[in-house]
Each structure stands twice: as C-alpha cells, then as structure tokens.
Design a binder for these strands. Structure first.
Lengths: 109, 109
DNA sequence: ATTTAATATTGCAATATTACGATAAAGACT
DNA sequence: AGTCTTTATCGTAATATTGCAATATTAAAT
C-alpha cells in the first residue's frame, strides 16, 4: 500500500489528475507563470527567478515536462522551455465545463 | 529539508497550488465529478462509488475540504458534501486567463 | 438505554515528493 | 585539448502522501 491506485480510475480522470498534480506545487505554478510572462524561456533564467537551487528547479521542470505541461528545445548550450498550450487548453476546458455544469445545478449545501 | 518552501512564493501562487494539489489525485477528481453528476451528495454514496476503503475516501474528502473545494453539512446522521463553486470558479478563471495570455504570445518552441 | 448506521480518527506500513550538494554530461569558446 | 557555461542526474535526508484495519464518534431508530 501507499501508491496511488491509478488502475481503478478512468483514463480521463488520471489524465486530469496528472496535470493538476504537476501544478500542485507553488514552484511549478511560478515556473508556468514565468514562462507566460517572458518572451525568452531559457532554463537558467528560471533558476535565477526562483528561490530554489538549480537541481531542484531542474527536477520541477522535469515533472512539468513529464506531465506534458511544458516542452523544451535545445538552444545552443542552453535549453528553451515553453508552455505546451494543449495541456493548458485541456485544463481550461475541463474547468469551464465544470463551471457550466455547476451553474445548471442547485447546489444543496 | 524535504518540505515545500511555501514562504518563498506569493499568496496567489500558493492558493492556486493548494487547489491544484488537492485535485492532483484521480480519486479526488472522481469525487468532484461524482458530486457534480448526482443531485444528492451523501458521503456513503461516494464510498460505494469509489474503489477505495471508507477511511481512505474519508481522508480524500477531508483534503478536498481543507483545500476549500468542497463543503459538508450535517444531514441527519449522514453528511452532505457539495462542490464549493468559488474554488472551481477560481480555477476556471485562472486557466482561462492563462489561455488568453498564451493566445497573444508567439511561443518560441 | 441499546442497537444500528454513517463518518471520522488513529496508527502504521509502503511509497512518493521535496530539496540540495556533489558530480556528470554536452555544447561553446578559446 | 582544455576551460567555461549550462543543464541533468545521482545520492540521500527530511517530509508528505496513500491506503487500510481497527477503533472512535455521533446521531437516528428501536
């Protein structure tokens, strides 16, 4: 025991949970917000921006990448990280859809 | 070390991370989706719906409640859990806002 | 007052996450 | 080749999460 029982849930539920889990840390929210704010997106800049050591930032970037939220491309000897719009789009439509469903409901509590 | 350095991030970043973290588990996604689907929302129903033991479900409900995503009101000897629309609304507008910002940007990668 | 039903809490084992120093890897620049 | 810069990986300690059996709590029903 101790590990998440992924196999008992639907693919869609797991997919959304993967995205929200990846965003479930303030450092990773900060990274995403930084990538949206700036025009360049060099990894080193992100390290400078965050109050965390370089290996920690690298690890957070890896998790965002694994979840599909960002993508990185090699740019000389540094790496350019960017938001993957598809992932954000999924989240956006997911919560928009929930909002619509909630509006139609009379919440009992 | 090992604990999240919450104090180094903004309140807003922490607030969003709290919400996304709470949703970062397929069981909790399933709970939220179930609460939206049904009209009644008694805890026992949720336990029957999920492939997890009652204490585990209770714990997930607690986390959703702590994050402000659901609220529970006592209804006889059972408890009525409902979505807190404000939390969903926060997430919805957060991702909608990001989407808009991304549209205006030419992503470099 | 007992019993029953519905949730919560406790305690614990298994696993995962967070953070960072040290080190490695890979490309750029002399 | 050697050095510098940039990013990734390894190893490890501290902490958090996940899951459940056992037990406690609370309110209804008898």
């Amino acid at each position: 025991m101790g590990a998440t029982k992924t196999e008992h849930f639907t693919d869609k539920q797991n997919a959304i949970a993967t995205l929200t889990k990846a965003l479930g840390h303030p450092a990773r929210i900060a990274i995403v917000e930084y990538l949206i704010k700036v025009d360049t997106c060099i990894c080193g800049d992100i390290v400078n921006e965050l109050p965390l050591a370089q290996p920690t930032v690298s690890q957070h970037l890896k998790e965002l990448k694994n979840a599909g939220l960002i993508k990185g491309s090699i740019e000389g000897n540094s790496i350019c990280y960017c938001i993957d719009e598809k992932a954000i789009s999924k989240l956006q439509s997911y919560f928009a859809n929930i909002s619509i469903k909630l509006e139609k409901k009379n919440n009992c509590c």
